[in-house]
Design a protein around this nucleic acid. Structure first.
Lengths: 207, 207
DNA sequence: ACGCATCACTTAACGCTGTTAAGCGGGTAG
DNA sequence: CTACCCGCTTAACAGCGTTAAGTGATGCGT
């Protein structure tokens, strides 16, 4: 009864989110609106508010879906590789590819409402996919540091610097359509190589 | 006559831009609107359209002001230092400071309309402050490369990777108010040190 | 089977947004 | 003195997120 009702409600929510993703892909984030979403699913605009508190909740759910996919991508890479540093390198490069392949979702996750997840304190209290993906990634970086292939440094700091590097590349690619940017894949490669070398324990002897 | 008229028009434009900057500082980019701007300068909303084509032109002008200040900041650092690598390091760190000190302007310049400057081709044709600042910065990086303190590589690629790194730090600081981010100053320092080391010609001998 | 309540949904509305068309008043040139 | 031009305003359009009120069907208790 109530069980079936909730299930039906959940199904409708998924349907709405699916339509939302379609609009994002077709028209981009800037042209997304509640009214357009409503007309796409064939209901009046206010109906959506019976299933989602407001627009922000829809954006939050889309963020979470984004992080689910991202986390799965990372997990797959980690499972396929043994060498720590090589794994990290692939993860960072895959992050850029993932961001460029899902530009609109990336926009929602990082460049819209800067506090969809609440305060930093609540971020770490609630179990979100964003948090899970981050903690897993940070542990990978910390493991590299502990194993001696990256410099000894606070795991969060090290992880966030490496992330900021690849995030900067994605951000540049997404936001500077007016600027003659070098191929993002090349930028990503140089970035990751540069950072992992600079923050790594140098084992080669140079002049 | 026409001369004085144009001058008066230019003065009014500056007055509008000043009010726009005030609104950005006070209420943030998200709460900026043409109507609010109009009421601040004491005119009806449509009056602004007699001095600016549309909202985008106002944003473009604010971007240009941003780049003027940024460029001046960089020029000052370059003038005060002799050592190429030390200069570049200071410039990159100053970029982060500048971005964090002017968050709303940074938002306008990088995270709003991604093509205020037109296409990449027109970007390099027209003489904008954005272009001037970039070319000057790129030449600094290229000089480092030519002098042998950075690896030999295409100047644009090298410059854009270094920029993407610090841009990533600023972007992270501005857009992740929900995330427990490490102090951006620390991130910037590790980022710049890491990149300049990794992309530099290593002169120290390590095991 | 009837009445009532609940539920899914809609219509109407508020207060915003950027932007355009039309109009109005005053100063100036012919 | 008239006609035009210039600076500015009012009115309006189309859209936005969101809320309050209403409507029609469905299912439940008696």
């Amino acid at each position: 009864m109530t069980d079936k009702c909730l299930q039906k409600k959940e199904e409708f929510r998924r349907e709405i989110l699916l339509a939302a993703r379609e609009i994002f892909s077709l028209d981009g984030y800037g042209n997304f609106s509640m009214r357009k979403l409503a007309s796409r699913i064939g209901y009046s605009p206010t109906t959506i508010y019976l299933y989602f508190k407001d627009k922000d909740e829809i954006l939050f759910c889309l963020c979470e879906e984004f992080y689910v996919e991202l986390h799965q991508t990372i997990l797959k890479i980690v499972g396929e590789n043994n060498d720590l540093l090589a794994t990290l390198r692939r993860v960072l490069l895959a992050y850029v590819s993932f961001g460029l392949a899902n530009p609109e979702q990336y926009r929602v996750a990082f460049f819209t409402n800067p506090s969809v997840y609440g305060s930093p304190a609540t971020y770490m209290e609630n179990d979100t996919m964003s948090r899970r993906a981050y903690l897993h990634y940070r542990d990978l970086v910390a493991a590299c540091s502990a194993a001696g292939v990256l410099i000894s440094m606070d795991g969060d700091t090290l992880a966030q610097v490496l992330w900021a590097g690849v995030h900067g590349v994605v951000s540049a690619a997404l936001h500077t359509r007016d600027f003659p940017l070098v191929d993002p894949a090349i930028l990503a490669d140089v970035m990751v190589t540069g950072l992992l070398t600079g923050l790594g324990i140098r084992q080669t002897v140079c002049i």
